[in-house]
Amino acid sequence: MTRLREEDISHIPLNLNEYNKKLLKDTGKSLGGIAAYAAGTTKEIIYNLRQDIPAAVIPITCGEGIINGFSISVQRIIDFLGFSAFVTDQKDVGGLAEAVEKGAKIIFLADDNRFVAINILTGKVVDNGEATGKGYAAALDLLSGGLRDKQVLLIGAGPVGTGASVFMSTHGAKVFVYDINREQAEKLKKNLPEVEIINNFYEALSQYDLLFDASPAEGIIGKEHLGEHMMISAPGIPLGLTRECLPLVPHRLIHDALEIGVATMLFDVLT
């Protein structure tokens, strides 16, 4: 996963209500509705579990260490979705023991390489990369009025792009993928033969109205690349669009640092 910075996430706890309103206006569904759609369930089914499934977020110190605000942001997102969640006082193994001792049934924890949710009751593990891809693909489906029989340009064939490809293909989209690492794109196509590989990124940009940016590259899409009707789903940090693009796509862009990914992880690990 891309390592976030404190400034990337410090606003999350305070802005959840406003972000939820934006999602509802742009896609027709709330944060929980998008996550449920991505997980193949409904909010009603998930919400019936709320009282019985407490969640714990465990700070992890290995690698480059704890990102200030990360654990509390994850906890606040889970709380916002109506679940009971807490950040453990202890870290690492001590935090895991504390989480279990306090009755947590869902565990969230991340190091420099992986961010996962674990359902202790079922043994299910959900990776943030796959869940984020599914969540943002679901948001793009809703934003665009449905992906069936539509073409989508996918930038990046890593875990997020792979999760997105599975969802989009399953929902009837034709996915065209570009990755600067050709082998990565070919690996995706091997698993999903219906995906087509694109060789010229900037030439392709002008040909698609639906764009899924799963690349970690910053500022690769300028305002000269934006079509009049282009809709963009762009998970994570940094954003691939330049700052000049943002006023041009206020209601045609889905983008956040953690919210959709964490919500989808939670709902997916419960299904």
Rank of each mutant, 00 (worst) to 15 (best):
residue 126 V to R: 07
residue 212 F to T: 02
residue 153 L to Y: 11
residue 57 V to T: 04
residue 60 I to F: 13
residue 159 P to G: 02
residue 70 F to D: 01
residue 130 E to V: 14
residue 115 F to V: 01
residue 12 I to L: 12
residue 254 I to N: 01
residue 124 K to D: 12
residue 67 I to K: 07
residue 131 A to S: 14
residue 211 L to P: 04
residue 104 A to R: 04
residue 171 H to F: 15
residue 6 E to C: 01
residue 163 G to N: 08
residue 45 I to N: 09
residue 175 V to S: 04
residue 236 G to L: 11
residue 174 K to T: 10
residue 103 G to K: 06
residue 168 M to D: 09
residue 211 L to F: 10
residue 143 L to W: 00
residue 207 Q to N: 15
residue 138 A to H: 05
residue 235 P to I: 13
residue 51 Q to F: 04
residue 265 M to H: 03
residue 91 K to G: 00
residue 239 L to H: 09
residue 62 C to T: 15
residue 115 F to D: 02
residue 77 I to R: 02
residue 88 T to F: 04
residue 99 A to G: 05
residue 46 I to C: 06
residue 123 G to W: 11
residue 111 D to K: 03
residue 261 G to K: 12
residue 74 V to E: 03
residue 134 K to G: 00
residue 258 L to Q: 10
residue 215 S to C: 09
residue 138 A to P: 09
residue 22 K to H: 15
residue 68 N to P: 00
residue 96 L to N: 03
residue 199 N to R: 12
residue 211 L to V: 12
residue 53 I to A: 01
residue 86 F to I: 02
residue 269 V to E: 03
residue 198 I to L: 06
residue 268 D to V: 00
residue 269 V to K: 03
residue 226 L to W: 08
residue 48 N to A: 10
residue 90 Q to R: 14
residue 216 P to G: 02
residue 123 G to F: 12
residue 19 Y to P: 07
residue 100 V to K: 10
residue 2 T to L: 05
residue 256 D to T: 06
residue 149 D to Y: 14
residue 225 H to T: 09
residue 173 A to P: 06
residue 201 F to W: 00
residue 244 E to S: 15
residue 228 E to Q: 13
residue 115 F to H: 15
residue 225 H to C: 09
residue 103 G to L: 02
residue 212 F to L: 08
residue 113 N to M: 05
residue 3 R to V: 07
residue 127 D to H: 14
residue 268 D to I: 00
residue 67 I to S: 06
residue 35 A to G: 11
residue 163 G to P: 11
residue 48 N to W: 00
residue 223 K to V: 09
residue 219 G to N: 15
residue 29 K to T: 04
residue 2 T to Y: 12
residue 110 A to S: 14
residue 121 L to R: 05
residue 188 L to F: 02
residue 86 F to H: 06
residue 221 I to Y: 05
residue 166 V to Q: 13
residue 120 I to E: 05
residue 5 R to D: 09
residue 24 L to E: 15
residue 218 E to Y: 05
residue 67 I to G: 04
residue 22 K to Q: 13
residue 129 G to W: 07
residue 257 A to H: 04
residue 168 M to N: 13
residue 143 L to C: 07
residue 144 S to I: 01
residue 76 R to M: 14
residue 246 L to R: 05
residue 153 L to V: 11
residue 230 M to R: 13
residue 41 T to C: 10
residue 88 T to C: 00
residue 173 A to F: 11
residue 85 A to D: 02
residue 121 L to N: 08
residue 28 G to S: 04
residue 240 G to F: 04
residue 37 Y to G: 00
residue 21 K to E: 15
residue 102 K to M: 12
residue 183 E to K: 15
residue 222 G to A: 12
residue 30 S to W: 12
residue 178 Y to G: 03
residue 110 A to C: 07
residue 244 E to V: 03
residue 134 K to I: 02
residue 82 G to I: 12
residue 230 M to C: 12
residue 150 K to G: 12
residue 215 S to H: 07
residue 233 S to A: 15
residue 168 M to T: 08
residue 221 I to A: 02
residue 100 V to A: 08
residue 183 E to M: 11
residue 99 A to M: 05
